[in-house]
Simulated scan of single mutants.
Amino acid sequence: MLKALFSLPRSVWLLGLISLVNDSASELVYPLVPLYLSGVLMAGPRVLGLIEGVAEALASLLKLWTGVMVDRSGRSKPWVIAGYGLAGIARPLIAFVAGWPLLLALRLTDRVAKAVRAAPRDALLAANIGPGQRGLAFGLHRAMDNAGAVIGPLLAWALLSAGVPLGQVFLWALIPGLLCLGLTLAVREAPPPATAPPRFSWTLAGLPKPLRRYLVVVALFTLGNSSNMFLLLRAKELGVAEAQVPLLWAAVSGVAALFSVPLGGLSDRVGRVRLLVVGYVAYATFYIGMAAWAAPGWRLYLLFGLYGIFMAATEGVERALLADLAPAEQRGTAFGWLNLVMGAMLLPASLLFGWLWEGLSATVAFGFSAGCALAAALLLTAWVRPAATMR
């Protein structure tokens, strides 16, 4: 495993390092936005919902558009530079916000920046690695991204514990932002595919049938994969102290970072579909446990550890499987569709989960999510037929 890992191209490692640095800045800021909104700007949950909902909706559409533009131009690097650069500028400017409309504008800029870089980065990563190592490469990328998700909250906690004012903490995001921008300039562009992409269609008609079926499976699973904020709310409801909630989430990212590489590499040998099925089943088990078995202490930490395993088994593998299913000349468009489906389903998933929780019970809400995951696992096994080596 180590030999294969260190044999990965320089571009794969560099893109992983960029994600680590960027996510450190992103997760330094993200947990503090609700605190800043309510404690400094005196705005409530409705404004927070408006900000995040508008930002994610626009980002979902842009992710597809930039993927299509990558295929048409044959270039990914300019989009990657622009995406990381915009985010690096927007985050520290939150320190100077005096009203929520400006915060909305900055969060929108940050989400737009993510949308601009997401599909081009994944397409660039796929172009730099062969099919036999895609799982390992995407697993490494997700591991480094999750490592950044551990560093960010811990850094925020350390700065606040040292007495740094909340507003000034946002300014610290400038340092990793500038470092991230510098690293993107060192990324090498991949050679364009020899075949020109077909004309884009909103009906998905130009994409291979297994890829279209896979997107349906992803949509079904994502319908039960609501905002992670509900998991933290459930932990708080079960009795976890507020100060420990961010640390609990940092631990999840730590588990995901630890297992993403070995599980991604395993998908190169046993098949992507099998690994994704295992991940979906782990997700269903976690949600059933959160509904009926969770309790403060070792049970809750065991369940959140299982959630980290789910992330490790799916985040990189689902992108590697998409790269297997997409022709080289349509890779950017395919990653754009994947990001669009995930982003577009997040809003109805969260609204439905919240309605089930408040209208019926937490058990019903968590049970529905588990059911979606199990149904997606069955559909993936029976319906999606990638190449024999990737089953």
Rank of each mutant, 00 (worst) to 15 (best):
M1L: 13
A4I: 00
A4Y: 00
L8V: 04
L8T: 02
N22R: 05
Y30G: 03
Y30D: 13
P31H: 12
L32Q: 12
P34M: 09
L41R: 14
G49K: 08
E52Q: 07
A57K: 00
V68N: 11
V70L: 09
D71C: 07
G74D: 03
W79C: 04
A82W: 05
P92V: 07
L93Q: 11
W100H: 12
A105L: 14
R111Y: 12
R117I: 07
P120Y: 06
R121G: 10
L125W: 09
A127Q: 05
N128D: 08
I129R: 00
I129G: 00
G130P: 01
L136Y: 06
A143C: 02
D145L: 08
L154V: 09
P165H: 09
A173C: 06
L174P: 09
L183A: 06
V187P: 05
A190M: 08
A190T: 05
P191R: 10
P193C: 07
P198S: 12
S201A: 15
W202A: 14
G206A: 15
P210T: 12
L211F: 15
L211V: 13
R212H: 12
T222K: 10
G224H: 06
N225M: 02
N225C: 04
S226D: 11
F230C: 02
K236G: 14
L238F: 03
V245A: 12
P246W: 13
V252S: 08
G254F: 15
G254W: 14
S267I: 03
A295M: 06
L300C: 03
L306R: 01
Y307T: 01
E318K: 01
L322P: 02
L322D: 06
A323G: 07
R331G: 08
M345E: 03
L352G: 04
F353I: 11
W355K: 10
W357C: 05
E358P: 04
F368E: 01
A373Q: 09
A375Q: 01
A387K: 07
M390R: 12
